[in-house]
């Protein structure tokens, strides 16, 4: 017996996320957080949700998502600098440019699967990184990064402090809702089918490549939006935004949180950034070592990440 679920029930996780996110300025300082870090966590929530659509649903592990993040960040920076300090045209152009790049990269890389796909995406991202560092340093600022942007404005509102936090949080909630819609849509079904067995899917007469490309581009658009918002949050673009380290960090966030759950990667992103910026201070120079050990423990004992821990706990309580 199938029942039509209500709007609130279907989107319960979106509402819970919205509640937690919007109240963040009140409870986050109590655990050692601070204004600024909460905004960065929201930016990365957008990034990982998009990444999870690709990795968690189609099973394609991209090691080059920093390319889309970075290209959008540079585009936003240059738009703010050269066109207008209004963020709306900057974000739109940045997402369009980055998405177009993703179409080209997607067409070239999605012919391969598994490790070959990962390596190809990594190679493309590194290519962009090298270009930003050498050929294009006139525009990107190279090693110094792109600096000297005006204060980003949302029409007449300065994008600083709480204003930028609530703006980015609003976008993050919206993008999480969109991801949930995609998950439930026919496209979401195709994505899961690709992960399950691509060959079988193709035998049913469905063009799997079309759906793979669509997912890749959607995921890149999320990364691009995050990259653009990163510059709105802080008017600075470092060449690190394009680097393999950035791509790797997203993978770690997703794995540690639990791929294929949308919520898990966001938990992972929050945990990683909180650890890197708050707990690392108490741990001193050894913080990277501790982080590595946490990652290993999670992967060995909870391959499903934090979400597996959550569902195990849930199962234990419901059994009793």
């Amino acid at each position: 017996m199938k029942m039509q679920q209500g709007f609130f029930e279907r989107n319960r996780s979106v509402f819970i996320f919205a509640l937690i996110a919007l109240t963040m300025p009140f409870w986050f300082p109590l655990i050692g957080g601070y204004s600024g870090l909460d905004t960065k966590i929201m930016v990365f929530c957008i990034f990982v949700v998009g990444f999870d659509l690709l990795l968690g649903y189609t099973g394609y592990l991209s090691f080059g998502h920093a390319a889309f993040f970075g290209i959008a960040a540079y585009t936003t920076g240059l738009m703010l600098k050269g066109f207008s300090d209004n963020i709306i045209p900057a974000i739109i152009v940045a997402v369009i440019v980055s998405t177009l790049v993703s179409v080209v990269i997607g067409l070239l890389t999605l012919k391969r699967t598994g490790i070959y796909f990962s390596i190809l995406t990594l190679a493309f991202a590194e290519m962009f990184h090298s270009m930003a560092m050498a050929m294009l340093q006139q525009w990107t600022g190279g090693e110094n990064g792109l600096t000297g942007m005006p204060t980003p404005m949302l029409f007449s509102i300065k994008m600083q402090g709480d204003a930028v936090f609530y703006f980015i949080t609003f976008v993050a909630i919206l993008m999480f809702y969109v991801a949930k819609r995609i998950e439930r849509s026919p496209v979401g079904l195709m994505m899961r089918a690709i992960k399950c067995n691509q060959t079988r899917l193709e035998y049913t007469g469905i063009n799997a490549r079309k759906y793979k490309l669509l997912t890749f581009v959607i995921s890149a658009a999320y990364a691009a939006l995050a990259g653009a918002l990163m510059v709105v949050y802080e008017p600075f673009v470092g060449h690190e935004f394009l680097g393999w380290h950035q791509s790797g960090e997203i993978v770690i966030m997703s794995v540690i949180g639990g791929v294929g759950t949308l919520v898990g990667p966001m938990l992972g992103a929050a945990f990683m950034l909180y650890f890197e910026n708050v707990l690392s201070v108490d741990l001193g120079e050894q913080w990277l070592l501790v982080l590595g050990m946490i990652f290993m423990v999670v992967v060995i004992f909870m391959p499903g990440g934090f979400m597996e821990a959550v569902s195990r706990l849930q199962a234990r309580f419901t059994q009793k």
Partner: peptide, 11 residues
């Protein structure tokens, strides 16, 4: 790392 240095300074 420039980005990390800014996040750290912000903290």
């Amino acid at each position: 790392n420039a980005d990390a240095s800014r996040t750290s300074a912000r903290r």
